[in-house]
């Protein structure tokens, strides 16, 4: 880790109105690395994603891409700079078809030029989408919508791909299908920050992970070291379990 990381968050504070959700969150992702951000419901994972994309403005701290701060850039400019999110709950455009959803992914001017190449690339990555080009996104299964949300994010040629709960509501089989593509994407040099409640699936594909609890980073380390760690269990089951154990 000699070079400066592709993506870095330093001392981020963020929240909604008067309630502060994230306090002093710092993390980084190297080029081509898969990093998970784990934690139970309400830990602040999605809030972190919203702050990175700019849909939520930070109260304090700095978000850097390639060393340049992007904290003050509006959401639509951050896409052009190379940050794309596949949001929690997929958020596909239900009354547009698969291809239109993907085309919207490359709305940002920089990605428009290489649109045909990226379409081919995504149809190769998710053959299921290629079979359903003209299908309205709202009528597809959860797994297909998840593939579409990831494909749509990739259409903008991101350098940092954010995946928010890609396994949410999917069967184990479909989750595996979606997760199989994550290392393939990273192998192209795209950095991935993965937010999950499904820690097992996330750690299996990640290089490193951070554990978020009550808006703070409580642990960080290599994925294999965190897998059976007490700190991860504590973050999920809180004081109840560790209290009972004592």
């Amino acid at each position: 880790m000699t070079s400066s990381p592709l993506f870095q968050i330093e001392h981020l504070n963020a929240g909604y109105g008067e309630s502060i959700v994230l306090s002093d969150v710092s993390l980084d992702v190297q080029q081509g690395e898969i990093v998970s951000l784990l934690g139970p419901n309400g830990a602040g994972k999605t809030t972190t994603m919203m702050a990175i994309t700019g849909l939520l403005s930070a109260y304090g701290g700095t978000i850097r891409l390639d060393g340049h701060p992007i904290t003050d850039k509006p959401a639509h400019k951050r896409v052009d700079l190379g940050v794309a999110l596949s949001p929690e709950g997929r958020q596909v455009f239900p009354e547009l078809n698969v291809e239109e959803n993907l085309l919207l992914g490359s709305f940002a001017s920089k990605a428009r030029a290489s649109r045909p190449r990226n379409l081919t690339r995504i149809y190769d990555l998710f053959p299921r989408l290629a079979e359903r080009k003209k299908q309205l996104a709202g009528l597809m299964s959860g797994g297909e919508q998840q593939m579409l949300a990831i494909g749509r994010a990739l259409m903008s040629e991101p350098r940092l791909l954010l995946l928010d709960e890609p396994s949410l509501g999917l069967s184990p089989l479909i989750t595996e299908l979606v997760y199989d593509t994550i290392p393939v994407i990273a192998a192209e040099g795209i950095s991935i920050l993965l937010v999950e409640q499904n820690t097992e699936a996330a750690l299996a594909v990640s290089n490193r992970a951070y554990v978020l609890s009550h808006g703070r980073i409580v642990a960080a380390g290599k994925a294999e070291d965190l897998r059976d760690s007490a700190v991860l269990r504590d973050a999920f089951f809180g004081g109840a379990l560790s209290g009972a154990a004592q």
């Binding site: 849909l55 509006p74 639509h76 896409v79 052009d80 949001p87 455009f93 919207l104 940002a108």
Partner: peptide
């Protein structure tokens, strides 16, 4: 259809 998702596409 989805304003927030539209912003995520880089739409002003």
């Amino acid at each position: 259809q989805n304003e927030r998702a539209a912003k995520l596409m880089g739409i002003d």
